[in-house]
Nucleic acid binder design. Structure first.
Lengths: 141, 141
DNA sequence: AGCTAAGTGAGAAAAGTTATCCTTAAAAAC
DNA sequence: GTTTTTAAGGATAACTTTTCTCACTTAGCT
């Protein structure tokens, strides 16, 4: 797959948000996609391999620009640093407190949002759900 | 209600965890109880009124000691600084993205934990759920 | 190709958190 | 109740993380 085709989608996503398409941004988006969710630290380490002179400031600025334009989402995780992921269908996360693995899990968020007690008139627009526990691998090990 | 009776409970909670009972710690616990959940910043501002010379280091050290001994919990909140609360029965939180209000809501966490897809063998020990949206007051206003 | 606005990079600055070290106070021992 | 022991508090320095500034470069229009 050529670089042009591979990046096409991200270019469009950036343009739709009036964000200029730069190699750094394409790299950030590609890394987020590849890893699923990634911390700033890891992102910097990985992107520095491609753009050895990239500045941390650039990274922060871009990640925030992408959050503000609803391209990326910050996932806050109990007892861990935040990770960032491309916005996709609503889902929850599993955090293994033993090995630290962190992954997406498909959960009917709408149903969960319907579980607020009657009498609570809160209009939910989004919800964040992280299950902490022991992953299958660690249970076996 | 005398200070002795009021603090009795916290003293015991501290002693059970081999944490020395100090006025600063009692103050921290009291403030957490009163506010429900509070950020480090607010906690420092409020506790400084009682103990004008308290150090930020003391605050951080104590909050961490209390987290490690399962007396207090850090609540990570999308697009906000963490808040800290006394550990109590499992519950979720409501965050109003308009006025910033943040409150507890009673939700059957066990039921939610049972909603993981079949085939996902994850042993959940705890889960964190925050609903973001518009609170009742803001909907009316 | 040239213009303009936005983005990048380097470093400084600011915020937020943790570590060090000495003093003080709580709990245990007597 | 006094002494002894040990943990905790406070001040400050050191880190870590994030944001800001500004000169320079590049993307996207014309």
């Amino acid at each position: 797959m050529s670089a042009i085709i591979r990046f096409m989608n991200y270019e469009q996503l950036l343009r739709e948000r009036d964000l200029k398409v730069t190699p750094q941004r394409l790299g950030i988006l590609t890394l987020m996609h590849q890893s699923g969710h990634i911390s700033i630290e890891d992102l910097y380490e990985k992107i520095s391999r491609q753009f050895s002179s990239i500045s941390l400031a650039t990274l922060y600025k871009n990640v925030h620009a992408m959050i503000e334009t609803a391209l990326v989402k910050e996932v806050k995780i109990p007892s861990m640093k935040s990770k960032y992921e491309l916005i996709k269908a609503p889902h929850a996360h599993l955090l293994c407190t033993q090995c630290g693995s962190f992954e997406d899990v498909s959960v009917p968020m709408e149903q969960i949002e319907a579980m607020l007690p009657h009498g609570v008139h809160f209009k939910t627009t989004e919800s964040s759900l992280v299950f902490s526990g022991i992953c299958e691998t660690c249970q076996k090990g």
